[in-house]
Write a protein that binds this DNA or RNA. Structure first.
Length: 888
RNA sequence: GGGCGGUUAGCUCAGCGGUUAGAGCACUGCGUUGACAUCGCAGGGGUCACAGGUUCAAUUCCUGUACCGCCCACCA
């Protein structure tokens, strides 16, 4: 470590995120930047954050969500729009309950033992802790959300919204209570919705079981995957057109062992080609059978307890588990000669989304939302274009789901969640459905009432999130100003669970769409494309990554090189390159700051002659600004970042800064204002994606910026907009020539292994760029370590017998005498290769230009362009050939 | 059974109806006293899965095939 030199800025050589991140986040929050002012004249930009479940810490998927939403939010805020990003957390009914139950189980307890009240206390304790962790993680990650409006799904406001929505729907007949076949989890002991059932392919068997005929000899053979449900059979069905069974329709069979007599019926839903063509009908334990039982008026026999053990209807098998019963029943059939055969059969089996237990279809009294009427409006909102889904392909997925929607079972036999706002009277049994908790029966006035013990599906409250967080059902200022919201950004995996429900419920409750754009991101996977999971052990801990590489690095890695709706493979290497970029920006700023300190006055000389490289970098910057703004409008965040990255690193640092160094060394400080200005604008361009490093540097640059209307933070600085008048094709061409020549010489040096310190001589011959190249010869001499570099028009190139390397550039020839080192054979080979590829290009272009179809059909501009290319190649080919002949 | 996505450099992925298809990482060679070795300079590496079609022109659009992945679905 060298001692600090006098007058020099004491900044570490590497960017140290830990030193700056907390400081700036606190600063932003203290200044209230994240809390929007309601400005009636302006239309706001609003994102309601998908509330993370209070089930533990945030994972990388959440961090991707934050990175994208924060980028959008910061961008719009910088554009001067009142911007609200509303944070919150979700009570996540069943998921949270399962976690707390597991905690209890570790202590040898279960919820039944401690009782509902105590259990809820336990959950609240966990929730408080979890919310704090989650909020802290958001803050660590730089989320610019409005903490003054933070919500939890069980808060009073959202809770009142839930009750209001329930009562409204009930009063409109869109919520009803009914005895239906639902998906039941025997482990969680609750109903779950269709969406919460995970279908998994399992290798099972098809069992062919014989049911003896009641009135005569013989039997009917049915094929089933679930022999144990025969105890609940109330019919055998065949297709009416099936010739094999016509004679049997109306006859009866006897269920073995339990000796129940059931009819053989005809139903056209039966597929004659499957199994035996005769199907056992178990209405209480199979959805298809349940439906058939409805139209055929078959009785229901429920054979199971809630925990999936067999009940008293199972006769001798009562109290056995479903697997054990299956085994025993097969044995008994086998013994009786009633098991015809067993074949292998692959089928899909439903599992509980939360606990992986095999779901049991079960008849039970539950609450349902009648969804088709809601779906009709939700479909219209999307087909009319009022709601746009990005990427577009998910529009069809959404519509397909909506068009085939079925009623939504919303009651859960859980303790954690929004209680159903329904009270039953012990006297007259009438239901009171009410937003406010009633103290007496609405019918008979009896105070002897009790509330429905069930809670609502957690997605019911999530479905109201965009309007419930803004104050609905009250007509609040927030609701009037911020609703409908702008963008709903979330993962495609919850399109049905959440997005679809929000659209239905939002439209129903408010009469308006909840958001204008749905942006769906992909899943975060590991470097091998596998889903990250604790089981696989391939999880990257986001906070650890943040500590190791910095928040900006992780954000950059998560959002670069990806496109909407596609999954993301994330590796540490990727985060490293994000860190390297932050470090690059950091060091560029260190250089600029030191340069300013060495020459403080130079920054303040705004009006002067600009050099070609000044005009070039400003021109390039403005092209990038234009591109980035366009890409952001199109939600192409990854591509926007890539353009900023490439500009900053590949043009500003690699060329402008390198040239500026040389100028500064010669005491020409006139590049300083340009350095500062380009740097500052680039920081603002990048700020939505890398908020911390950009703020840190922006603040240290601030003293040297023009003081007029300078905000206190980059957070509220304006987002750059392109200035068309700054686009400067002449400067771009000139610098391109300088860069080409420099590269050409560097290339030759590398090829001939010229030691890095050793200068070589070179000549450049050019017509159109002779002026700028000789103007920049000193610069090129330094950049390419070439000395002397002479520049002359082409016709002044001497005919010499000396063997030299010649690089044919577009508008110049670079001649390097290698003092006898020239490898003639290698040079010849190189030239021949180039001649060949030029020849091929010419052949291609000539063929194209000879094609009358091309000439007549292609746009004139394209034809002209191709002609120009042909003449360029022809010119190049001629020059290459001449060089080859010179080589002898 | 229906639908969707992917197939581009060694790896992870961008991109695109019109120059010689890009990036990051990895790789090879050279390089460390002044922004940065978390770096610089130079380089190698691609039949854009395959087969048809549309078009003046296809890696890009369409159709089909193969493989991989995902979603939805009541063949017991």
């Amino acid at each position: 470590m060298s001692a600090k030199e006098p007058g020099q800025t004491e900044t570490p050589k590497a960017y140290e995120p830990a030193r700056v991140e907390g400081k700036w986040y606190r600063f932003w929050v203290e200044r209230g930047y994240f809390t929007p002012k309601i400005e009636p004249g302006k239309s706001p930009f609003v994102i309601i954050m998908p509330p993370p479940n209070v089930t533990g810490e945030l994972h990388l998927g959440h961090f991707l969500t934050i990175a994208l939403e924060d980028a959008m939010t910061r961008w719009h805020r910088m554009k001067g729009e009142p911007t609200l990003w509303l944070p919150g957390t979700d009570h996540a009914g069943i998921a949270t309950q399962v976690i707390v139950e597991q905690q209890l189980a570790k202590k040898g307890l279960d919820r039944k033992h401690i009782g509902r009240e105590k259990f809820e206390e336990q959950v609240w304790a966990w929730v408080r802790q979890c919310r704090q962790t989650i909020n802290l993680q958001h803050q660590r990650f730089g989320a610019s959300c409005d903490w003054t409006r933070e919500r939890f799904t069980l808060d009073d406001g959202p809770a009142r919204a839930v009750r209001s929505a329930f009562v409204r729907l009930y009063n409109k007949g869109l919520i009803y209570r009914g005895e239906r076949l639902i998906n039941w989890c025997p482990r969680c002991l609750t109903a779950i919705s269709d969406l919460e059932v995970q279908h998994q392919e399992l290798k099972g068997h098809l069992y062919y079981m014989r049911y003896p005929l009641a009135e005569s000899d013989g039997f009917v053979t049915v094929a089933t995957t679930r022999p144990e449900t025969y105890l609940g059979d109330t019919a055998v069905a065949v297709n009416p057109a099936d010739q094999r069974y016509v004679g049997l329709i109306g006859k009866k069979v006897v269920l073995p062992v339990i000796n129940r007599v059931i009819p053989i019926i005809a139903d056209s839903a039966v597929d004659s080609s499957f199994g035996t063509g005769a199907v056992k009908i178990t209405p209480a334990h199979d959805p298809v059978d349940f439906e058939m039982a409805g139209r055929q008026h078959l009785p229901l026999v429920n054979i199971m307890n809630p925990d999936a053990t067999l009940n008293e209807n199972a006769g001798p098998y009562a109290s056995m588990g479903r697997e054990a019963a299956r085994k025993k029943i097969l044995e008994d059939f086998e013994k009786a000669g009633l098991l015809e055969k067993i074949t292998d059969h692959v089928h899909m089996v439903g599992h509980c989304d939360r606990c992986r237990t095999v779901v049991e279809p079960r008849v039970s009294k539950q609450w349902f939302v009648n969804t088709p009427p809601l779906a009709a409006r939700a479909i219209e909102a999307v087909t009319s274009g009022r709601i746009i889904i990005i990427p577009e392909r998910f529009t069809r997925v959404y519509l397909n789901w909506m068009e085939n929607i079925r009623d939504w079972c919303i009651s859960r036999q859980l303790w954690w969640g929004h209680r159903i706002p329904v009270w039953y009277c012990s006297k007259c049994s009438v239901m009171t459905v009410s937003v406010e908790t009633p103290d007496k029966c609405s019918k008979c006035g009896s105070p002897d009432i009790f509330q429905d013990p069930d809670v609502l599906d957690t997605w019911f409250s999530s479905g109201l999130w965009p309007h419930s967080t803004l104050g609905w059902p009250d007509d609040t200022e927030d609701l009037r100003y911020f609703y409908p919201t702008s963008v709903m950004e979330t993962g495609y995996d919850i399109l049905f669970f959440w997005v679809a429900r929000m659209i239905m419920m939002g439209l129903e409750d408010t009469g308006d769409i909840p958001f204008r754009t749905v942006y769906l991101h992909g899943l975060v996977r590991d470097e091998k494309g596998d889903k990250m999971s604790k089981m696989r052990g391939n999880v990257l801990n986001p906070l650890e990554m943040t500590r190791k590489y910095g928040t900006d690095a992780l954000r950059f890695a998560l959002t670069t090189g990806t496109s909407p709706g596609n999954d993301i493979s994330l590796s540490q290497q990727r985060i490293e390159s994000g860190r390297n970029f932050a470090n690059k920006i950091w060091n560029a700023s260190r250089f600029i700051l030191r340069a300013i300190e060495a020459n403080p006055e130079a920054v303040k000389t705004p009006d002067r002659e600009f050099t070609w490289e000044d005009r070039w970098i400003v021109s390039r910057l403005n092209r990038v600004i234009g591109g980035v703004n366009r890409l952001l409008e199109e939600y192409q965040f990854g591509e926007a970042e890539r353009q900023i990255h490439d500009f900053f690193w590949g043009e500003f640092c690699d060329w402008y800064l390198e040239i500026a160094k040389l100028r500064l060394r010669q005491g020409q400080a006139s590049c300083l204002p340009v350095l500062v200005s380009v740097m500052e604008i680039a920081l603002r361009l990048l700020h939505p994606f890398m908020p911390f490093v950009t703020e840190e540097i922006w603040q240290s640059l601030k003293p040297y910026l023009p003081p007029d209307k300078l905000p206190d933070s980059i957070v509220i600085a304006s987002y750059p907009t392109a200035r068309p008048e700054a686009i400067d094709p002449a400067a771009e061409d000139n610098l391109e020539a300088v860069i080409q020549v420099t590269r050409s010489i560097r290339n030759a040096r590398a090829q001939y292994r010229v030691p890095s310190g050793k200068a070589i001589a070179a000549q450049v011959y050019s017509d159109s760029f002779a002026g700028v190249l000789s103007e920049y010869s000193g610069i090129i001499e330094s950049l390419a370590v070439v000395r002397p570099l002479t520049v002359a028009p082409r016709n002044q190139r001497p005919q010499t017998a000396e063997k030299v390397i010649v690089d044919i550039l577009k508008d110049a020839e670079v001649v390097i005498p290698m003092a006898g080192m020239v490898d003639i054979a290698a040079e010849r080979q190189r030239l021949e290769k180039e001649i060949q590829s030029a020849g091929e290009a010419i052949a291609r272009l000539e063929a194209r230009l000879k094609d009358p179809a091309f000439i007549s059909q292609a746009p004139a501009a394209i034809v002209e362009k191709e002609k120009a290319r042909l003449s360029e190649y022809a010119d190049r080919l001629a020059r290459l050939k001449q060089e080859l002949s010179q080589l002898g």
